[in-house]
C-alpha cells in the first residue's frame, strides 16, 4: 500500500528520458540535524531519507525525543538541515530565500496543530478566511472559498461560532478547513488527535482520509496514536533521530 521509496540514486536515473519524470511530492535525502545545548551536541536526525511520490497520508511515529518535531520543522522550512536536502515538488527548501518563505508556506503548506491554534476572537469563518489573507483575492472570493471549505469539513452550520463555542472536534475540523482552504499540496499535522476523545479522533481521521483522496492533498502527521498509524498509507518510525521502520 505504501508509496515510500528510497530516494533515487543518480546512477539509477535514465540518461535521456523520453518524457520528464514527475519529481516526488516530497523527498528527504540524507538529512542530518543536530542542536547544541551548552557544550553538548544533541543529534536530532541522522541521515534520514524517504520520499513521497503520490498524495497520501504519512504518519511519523516515534517516542518523544525521537526527532518527529525536528522533521516537521524541516518540512515546514522553520529550520534547515545541517546536511542533506528536503525537496517539495522538486524544490530544495533550503534554496528558498527568507523573503519568499511566507508565500511558500501560504501556497504550498497547511498546518494542523494539536491545540487547534484558532484565533479565539474570530469566528470559524473568519479563522478560515484569514489563511487566504496573503492571497490576491477579493473579500467575496475569500468568503466563498472559506464557506465552501467549512461545508466540506462538515462545519457549514457553525460559521459564525467562535472557537470557545465549539467542541474540540469541531475546532479541529475548522483548523483542517483553515489548513486546506489555500489548496496546499502538503499538510503538516502535529498530533491532530492528541486533544480529542476516541470517537472524535476517529471522525477527524476519517475526514483527513477523505480529504486526502478527494483533494489529492498529502498529509504528514506526527503522532503517537496507533489509529493514525492504521489509517496512514505509510508510516515512518523514528527513534533517536534515525529511521527504524
Amino acid at each position: 500500500m505504501g508509496h515510500l521509496q528510497p530516494p533515487p540514486s543518480p546512477q539509477s536515473q535514465p540518461l535521456a528520458p523520453a518524457s520528464r519524470p514527475q519529481p516526488p511530492i516530497l523527498a528527504v535525502e540524507s538529512v542530518t540535524k543536530h542542536y547544541r545545548r551548552g557544550s553538548e551536541r544533541i543529534v536530532a536526525l541522522t541521515d534520514l531519507s524517504f520520499s513521497i511520490d503520490a498524495p497520501e497520508v504519512v504518519a511519523i511515529a516515534g517516542p518523544s525525543g525521537s526527532g518527529k518535531s525536528t522533521l516537521l520543522n524541516l518540512l515546514a522550512r522553520f529550520d534547515v538541515p545541517d546536511s542533506g536536502e528536503v525537496r517539495l515538488d522538486g524544490q530544495d527548501l533550503a534554496s528558498i530565500s527568507p523573503a519568499a518563505l511566507d508565500e511558500f508556506r501560504n501556497r504550498k503548506l497547511g498546518f494542523v496543530f494539536q491545540q487547534f491554534n484558532l484565533l479565539p476572537v474570530l469566528s470559524a469563518l473568519e479563522n478560515v478566511e484569514l489563511a487566504l489573507a496573503p492571497q490576491a483575492l477579493s473579500r467575496a472570493q475569500r468568503r466563498e472559498r472559506a464557506i465552501a471549505m467549512l461545508e466540506r469539513v462538515g462545519m457549514g452550520y457553525r460559521l459564525a461560532h467562535k472557537p470557545g463555542e465549539l467542541s474540540g472536534g469541531q475546532q479541529q475540523r475548522v483548523a483542517i478547513a483553515r489548513a486546506l482552504v489555500g489548496r496546499p499540496r502538503f499538510v503538516i499535522a502535529d498530533e491532530p488527535t492528541g486533544n480529542l476523545d476516541s470517537k472524535t479522533a476517529a471522525e477527524i481521521l476519517q475526514l483527513i482520509s477523505e480529504l486526502n483522496q478527494t483533494m489529492q492533498t498529502t498529509f504528514v502527521i506526527a503522532t503517537h496514536d496507533p489509529r493514525v498509524m492504521q489509517l496512514a498509507n505509510s508510516v515512518i518510525e523514528l527513534a533517536d533521530g534515525q529511521r527504524i521502520g
Binding site: A76, R105, N106, L119, L130, A133, P134
Partner: peptide, 15 residues
C-alpha cells in the same frame, strides 16, 4: 502561539 500560527500560515511578520 497565535503569532507563530499566523507566521506558519504564511502571514508576514510585517503584516
Amino acid at each position: 502561539r497565535e503569532i507563530g500560527t499566523l507566521r506558519a500560515m504564511g502571514i508576514s511578520s510585517q503584516t
